[in-house]
Write a protein that binds this DNA or RNA. Structure first.
Lengths: 189, 189
DNA sequence: CGATTCTTTGAAAACAGTCAATCTGTGTGG
DNA sequence: CCACACAGATTGACTGTTTTCAAAGAATCG
């Protein structure tokens, strides 16, 4: 489990054995079964979560009880409610497992300490935040610029793995359209 | 012009006169007339831009020549194409002034240097990135969860000043709807 | 298998977009 | 100061897309 994380780190930065040992000290492994919550609306998000295996989603539930998927995340991605971690306020979002999933959890204090102790790890985390920012900015761009069909096409191009692994209704939710609409635009080619 | 920036800094962090002097050294003031570009599609974005007076927008233009507003920014906000600054690649976006505007420009090297020399300024910039991230995440959330009328209502609640200062057609573009549609949903109350 | 969940399909209604014309307010040049 | 031009906003009639509700058909899991 930690091996996957080690691989991930090696692909981005250079670390010695001492750094790895330190990182491992603060990593809390956890296994989640399909449908199991990592974070539930109303709770404070305490962990930055690195996914070593599996697939998760972050979503909000509106007044009508409908779910709206904010993002998906699979192996070698981070997921958490940044807003809640930073502010210490209850989250408005849920995070749960779409498949059986294995993660490494790092609480806020650990991340701060590790970023400080291992500057290259700090840079990695900052780069990750920058990338996430750009990803969301692009998502906003696509969301306001394209119609349902174009959004779906772009989603499949960008995330072919998600298109296969995620139930269609959740993809529809992610795109901001109804499952019936997605089914229909898929069927006409 | 720098005074506005100084006020902004004082509201967030504590700095001594030496820090202010250093910041001022690297701040390049610039005046933009209404409709003037700060960044044009295809150019590399070289500056982080702090707005001291006025109002700007960042937008993309699609194949049909239609503009899609990614974000607005006014006094005491930062604007730039982060993706282009970081990567050094040409920007897909335009940034221009909606009103006559005054800004302070900081190139990438200056920001890096200042963040390093003045840790509290570094924290401010990081906090700003975190805030921007959360803002875009929330925008995605609203964009996939609400219909045209709800999006407009929330926009007015969140940005009452923009609702007054920005032409309606640009607000429509920001919300991902047509100007006629916005006009119509405004007129029924 | 049987039960549950996910997907597809149909018909009608609601919503948003298109195109064209008109209206409004602003600012400019004569 | 007026007349005009121009950009922005509104309105109408129509088209097209997406949602809604309901039912039936697959697929998956214990």
């Amino acid at each position: 489990m930690f091996e996957v994380f080690k691989e991930y780190l090696l692909q981005h930065i250079e670390l010695n054995e001492h750094d790895f040992a330190l990182l491992e000290t603060y990593a809390h492994p956890k296994k989640l079964r399909k449908r199991q919550y990592l974070l539930q609306e109303g709770d404070v998000c305490r962990y930055n979560c690195f996914i070593t295996h599996g697939l998760m989603r972050m979503y909000a539930v509106d007044q009508k009880g409908e779910e709206h998927v904010i993002r998906f995340a699979s192996e070698n991605w981070w997921i958490s409610d940044r807003e809640s971690i930073i502010s210490g306020l209850p989250s408005r979002f849920n995070i749960d497992a779409i498949e059986d999933t294995e993660v490494l959890l790092f609480d806020k204090a650990s991340i701060d300490l590790l970023m400080h102790q291992i500057p290259s790890f700090g840079k990695l985390i900052t780069d990750m935040l920058n990338k996430s920012f750009v990803t969301f900015q692009n998502r906003v761009h696509e969301s306001i610029s394209y119609n349902a069909e174009e959004k779906y096409t772009k989603f499949v191009e960008r995330y072919p793995a998600f298109a296969l692994r995620v139930p269609q209704a959740m993809i529809a939710s992610y795109l901001g359209i109804k499952p019936e609409t997605l089914s229909r635009l898929r069927s006409k080619r």
